[in-house]
Simulated scan of single mutants.
Amino acid sequence: MRIWIFLIAFFSFSALAEEDIDCDKAWTTLEINQCMYKELVGAEKVLDKYLVKSLERYLEDDVSLASIKKVKKLGSIIEKSTAARFMTHGATGLSEQR
């Protein structure tokens, strides 16, 4: 039974994801999330462009190349841990006070 609910929900959200949304008028959580995702994808493309240019520029400098790759890897780790923390926060409904 659970698998059917999951499949129905998955395909429903997939169908909604295909809609063209006016992000200036996004109102629901789903619409806002889709708009934020589009913005994220655009930002990642820009960052990837700069990463490629940086790697090309410092091709002969092993120390700089290693540093760029290390920072990229650390950035990915931070991004994943932040997403996991956000998902845990959203799932539990608890706020963290630090």
Rank of each mutant, 00 (worst) to 15 (best):
G93P: 01
T82L: 14
W27G: 02
E60C: 01
Y37T: 06
T92M: 07
E39V: 07
L30S: 12
E18I: 09
Y50E: 14
W27N: 06
S12G: 05
F10A: 11
L40N: 11
K80S: 10
E19W: 09
F13G: 12
K80Y: 04
S76N: 13
V41F: 01
A9I: 12
D48M: 02
S12W: 08
C23K: 01
E56P: 02
A66T: 06
A84K: 15
A83C: 08
A43M: 14
I3G: 00
R57L: 09
S76L: 10
L51E: 11
R57I: 05
S12F: 06
K49I: 04
V52P: 00
N33Q: 12
L47E: 13
H89Y: 05
F86A: 15
A26T: 00
K49C: 13
I21N: 02
M1P: 09
Q97H: 10
R98C: 04
E39Y: 10
I32L: 08
R98G: 07
A91Y: 11
D48G: 05
R85Q: 14
S81G: 02
D48Q: 06
S64M: 13
T92F: 05
S14L: 15
E60N: 03
E79Y: 02
L47S: 10
F6A: 04
K45I: 13
I5V: 10
K69T: 12
S14Q: 15
N33P: 00
L74N: 09
I21G: 10
L16V: 08
I78R: 11
V63K: 14
T92E: 07
Q34Y: 04
I77N: 08
A84Q: 11
A26Y: 00
L40V: 04
V46H: 01
K73A: 12
C23T: 01
V71K: 06
L74W: 06
L94E: 14
K69Q: 15
A43Q: 11
T28L: 11
I78W: 10
Q34E: 02
L47C: 09
T29A: 10
F11N: 06
A83M: 15
K45E: 15
D62E: 14
C35V: 04
G75F: 02
R85S: 15
D20G: 09
S76W: 02
L94D: 10
S64Q: 12
D62Q: 08
A66P: 00
D24L: 05
V71P: 00
S64H: 09
I77S: 03
L47V: 04
V41T: 08
Q34M: 08
E31Q: 15
E18P: 01
S95P: 00
C35Y: 04
A15M: 08
K25I: 03
V52M: 11
I32S: 05
M1V: 11
K53I: 08
E60W: 04
E39D: 12
K38P: 02
L59Q: 13
G93H: 05
T28V: 07
K53V: 14
D24R: 06
D62I: 00
L94G: 06
T88D: 15
K73V: 05
